[in-house]
Design a protein around this nucleic acid. Structure first.
Ligand SMILES: [Zn+2]
Ligand SMILES: [Zn+2]
Ligand SMILES: [Zn+2]
Ligand SMILES: [Zn+2]
Length: 265
DNA sequence: GAGTTTGAAACT
DNA sequence: CAGTTTCAAACTC
């Protein structure tokens, strides 16, 4: 659920200072862009219609139409992803089929600034084999690229030569990264939609090896296939899979405790 | 939940 | 192109 565009639900009214960039309609009908600073009462106009810049009184007496969801590529995730807003908390949103014209203009403006604005930022690795890279690279200064503030880290990929980050710790051999990941010999699985998961192949905190994970998944799948073959109900299938998981877990714990010399009841 | 930190994108 | 501003999300307590 997007919390963009300073909706009241997102705390917009509580935020001191600036309302988003708004379209204001002058009494004559002309539309201009302005930035409304509720702290100072200042209205800063964007030079769409420069001759109205000094007419603050005039501006304050007219209604402002919020178009923040489409005014800026990044400020609304839905817009940035090329989607319409839906189920957002956005305020007077124009990022929907009812405002085709304004939306199209905004998309064009974004593309004029950056022709790749709506392309995916991560180059897709075909069949999961090619290492994905951030197309623009990050510019992190303070996070060491080891927090989700970093787009590379967030995408679970290493920083590359095109990144301009300072103090980067998000590279393959980075000790800090390995510590954070807690996975000296981690395995990363990436599905065809780019989602990825990591599995440790050694003991530090995780005691379940990749082979065991794989075997467990195979067992669960076998149950699912069995249920499908016998045309059992979804409910029964779920029960079978869960019970199998229980048996697997029990066995995993048993062998794990046993290997560590602990007693098992 | 409130307050702080962060860096992309916008802006100058 | 570099410095600054703005913003929503990530993060911290
Ligand atoms: Zn919206
Ligand atoms: Zn980074
Ligand atoms: Zn990076
Ligand atoms: Zn980096």
């Amino acid at each position: 659920v997007s919390q963009c565009c300073m909706s009241p639900e997102a705390g917009g009214e509580k935020r001191i200072g600036h309302l988003p960039t708004v379209v204001c309609q002058l009494k004559g009908g002309t539309q201009i862009l302005c930035i409304n600073n509720y702290d100072t009462g200042e209205l800063k106009t964007v030079p769409l219609v420069p001759q109205y810049q000094d007419q603050h009184d005039n501006l304050q007496s007219v209604t402002c139409l919020f178009i923040s969801c489409i005014i800026n590529h990044r400020y609304c995730d839905c817009f940035a992803n090329g989607d319409f807003c839906s189920n957002c908390n956005c305020n007077n949103c124009y990022n929907n089929p009812h405002h085709e014209m304004e939306r199209f203009k905004a998309i064009k403006a974004c593309l004029d600034r950056n022709p790749e604005a709506f392309l995916p930022k991560i180059g897709k690795g075909k069949l999961g084999d090619i290492k994905p890279r951030h197309n623009k690279g990050c510019n992190c200064k303070r996070s060491g690229c080891l927090k989700n503030y970093c787009e590379c880290f967030e995408a679970k990929i290493m920083c590359s030569s095109i990144c301009k980050c300072v103090g980067c710790k998000n590279y393959e051999e980075s000790p800090d990264r390995k510590t954070l990941m807690n996975m000296p010999n981690h395995l990363e699985i990436r599905d065809n939609e780019g989602n990825s998961a990591m599995f440790s192949d050694r003991q530090p905190t995780t005691c379940i090896s990749w082979e065991v994970v794989e075997a467990t998944c195979a067992c669960l799948l076998a149950q699912a296939e069995e249920a499908e073959k016998e045309a059992y109900s979804v409910c029964l299938a779920e029960q079978m899979i869960l019970e199998e998981f229980g048996r697997c877990l029990s066995q995993i714990l048993y062998s794990e405790f046993k290997s560590k010399g602990l007693k098992v009841e």
